[in-house]
């Protein structure tokens, strides 16, 4: 437990200290949100209707962006070998690393989403629902992305391949995240059903993905 806590602290320190990595994701998120109205026109009614979808897609792309360094940095400086040889189970190590990565890059996205929702003319209820779904859903994105990061850890330019491998797997999260936040706007649909499924997806990812990512990391290192 102490090893895991210190790992978490180390990851957080690295993420915060190295060249504004936290703000890079938020900035990219902002860029996506700004680019969309230029593509589809400044119609505020339309924007407020598809706002949750835009924000979710932006969050999805932004959270994939920083993932290729999740294990690669550790591999480059050799600390991945130490983690592999250590007595803490690798699955837990992967889980803690994902948790730290989410706290350093997913959480800022969630916090900035209500601000960006103002640009899209979303009303307060929809914004609240969107933020709640992002809190529940973005950990799943990080966990699913960890598999891609583990598979491409030994590749020089794995970033693009990672996105290709991971995006199909994130479709369910996107569908239920957007459905739940739309349901808050549209009173004919219940909010709880898609939201519960979204939470279930995150919990399933928390169980399955660390195992898969740890397996991939072990194979990549022998």
């Amino acid at each position: 437990m102490r090893a895991l806590t210190s790992l978490f602290v180390r990851e957080m320190q690295l993420a915060i200290r190295i060249g504004g990595g936290v703000w890079m994701g938020v900035l990219f998120f902002l860029c996506v949100i700004v680019v969309v109205p230029f593509g589809i026109g400044p119609d505020l009614n339309l924007l407020s209707r598809i706002g949750p979808a835009i924000l979710w897609i932006g969050a999805l792309l932004a959270s994939l962006l920083g993932l290729d360094r999740l294990f690669q940095a550790d591999r480059d400086d050799g600390s991945l070998d130490l983690l592999l040889m250590g007595e803490t189970p690798l699955e837990l190590v992967v889980f803690v690393k994902c948790l730290a990565h989410w706290a350093a890059s997913g959480l800022p996205l969630v916090i900035s989403a209500p601000v960006f929702a103002l640009f899209l003319n979303m009303d307060p209820i929809a914004t609240a629902a969107l933020t709640v779904t992002l809190v529940a859903g973005t950990p799943a994105l990080t966990l699913i992305g960890a598999i891609g990061a583990a598979l491409t850890v030994s590749l020089r330019r794995g970033g693009l391949l990672l996105a290709i491998l991971v995006l199909p797997l994130t479709i369910p999260v996107l569908i239920f995240g957007v459905s739940a936040s739309n349901a808050a706007l549209n009173l004919t649909l219940p909010f709880t059903t898609p939201f519960a499924i979204l939470c279930a997806l995150t919990l399933i990812s928390a169980v399955v993905e660390p195992y898969a990512a740890a397996t991939a990391l072990r194979f990549a290192s022998d």
Binding site: L151, L165, I175, F219
Partner: peptide
Amino acid sequence: KAVAVLTLVGYINIPIIKFSVNWW
């Protein structure tokens, strides 16, 4: 080995994807 991990993860995900696409 890498592809085997990816294939199995994908295989677990196929029913989930199918279910969510149906819902959507």
